[in-house]
Design a protein around this nucleic acid. Structure first.
Lengths: 200, 200
DNA sequence: AAATTTCAAAGACTACAGTCAAAAACCGTG
DNA sequence: CACGGTTTTTGACTGTAGTCTTTGAAATTT
């Protein structure tokens, strides 16, 4: 790996210092109560340095979201082969919700859902969901071949419907207080699954 | 109505001038490309006046959203009594999407979906959706009584699922380019309806 | 090893939403 | 109609994200 010049090494170190400081501060005080100036002061860098390494305050999270791919990889591995396709989808939704709730947290996720709607911001969703999309597509496709899922909709369409369920639930998590993310996720996906699975 | 003093009248006039100017500018250049200073300059008022009449830049829309209740009222009236409950829901979703697309527009709706996620902003959704919620609840409840809709979920739960579909679809409208709101809304609600309606 | 180029880092500066204390316009009452 | 109180209006001010020009040290070329 390291064919890095001294300069690149130093830059990388600066980036890491900013990142760690920022995440620590966000954890302490919440995203909106931390200013960029505060981050640069505490990390002993400068505003200029911050914006060399990150395109915006939101961008800090892109790094964090790389972890999500590990989650999907893990999930894929531990998924029992013999499970029915709707069982797999149901399990995926549940695991995803538990993961997002416990490992990323509501505040972090909120910033994603906000920034995805703001023009000119990096596109977190495509980063975050490309893997998810593939995973669901695969399950649906296999489910249709195995005759467990109706074939009146294409795998692409069904994937869209299923992932939209997740986004809708995650959005509502932000909207409502006392919202049980995992429970609501299950209820919602259950309703969809009943509509798309073949009768026995 | 007018037991208004000259002062109250003038204030009302100022508010209207700000509102009209703002909406015109938003229409021209899009929400993010209009500044509050620009609005106050063009409406020949001041920043102070603006913030007396509106709590934030987003708040301008609250006024616009009052129109939504008229839409629901109209819908309720023109809804054929003899229609099946899932036909009603399907029609509601379709009309709603057409209305939001054509009368409010994507940009305006985006600001709602953003501001709903930002703490301390007025709660547009509860304004916007209280009527919707009631309407759906009523249809679902009647559907269950008429034996058209499964009774394994409460009307409240089903209402939540159905309105969440709408929110999910509207959110995705913002997210993806070349997204046919009406078509996608129909597809999504269709999938849900197949899951919740009783077999014949 | 001197000259030139590159690029991270610095921090002053801009743009803009939102605040606030003071002024102006208006109202009712003696 | 003058005066004390009330509401509207004003614009200077604040806070913060993000930009831009400048600086200096490391890398590269001669």
């Amino acid at each position: 790996m390291p064919g890095l010049t001294q300069r690149q090494l130093k830059a990388q170190e600066t980036k890491k210092r900013i990142l760690d400081t920022a995440l620590a501060l966000f954890g302490e005080k919440g995203f909106d109560h931390v200013t960029v100036d505060e981050i640069t002061a505490k990390s002993e860098t400068s505003k200029g340095a911050f914006y060399v390494h990150f395109n915006s305050k939101y961008d800090i999270f892109l790094e964090k979201f790389k972890e999500i791919d590990e989650f999907y990889a893990d999930f894929m591995e531990t998924l029992p082969k013999e499970m029915k396709s709707y069982g797999k989808i149901s399990l995926l939704v549940k695991s995803q919700m538990v993961y997002l709730r416990d490992s990323l947290g509501k505040d972090l996720l909120r910033t994603v859902y906000v920034s995805a709607l703001i023009p000119n911001k990096s596109d977190y969703f495509s980063n975050m969901e490309r893997q998810l999309y593939k995973l669901v597509y695969k399950i649906v496709e296999e489910g249709q071949i195995a005759g467990e899922i109706k074939e009146d909709r294409s795998p692409g369409e069904l994937t869209m419907v299923i992932t939209r369920c997740m986004r809708g639930t995650l959005y509502d998590w932000q909207l409502f207080d006392h919202f049980d993310l995992v429970l609501e996720g299950e209820k919602f996906i259950q309703a969809i699954l009943e509509g798309i699975q073949k009768e026995i």
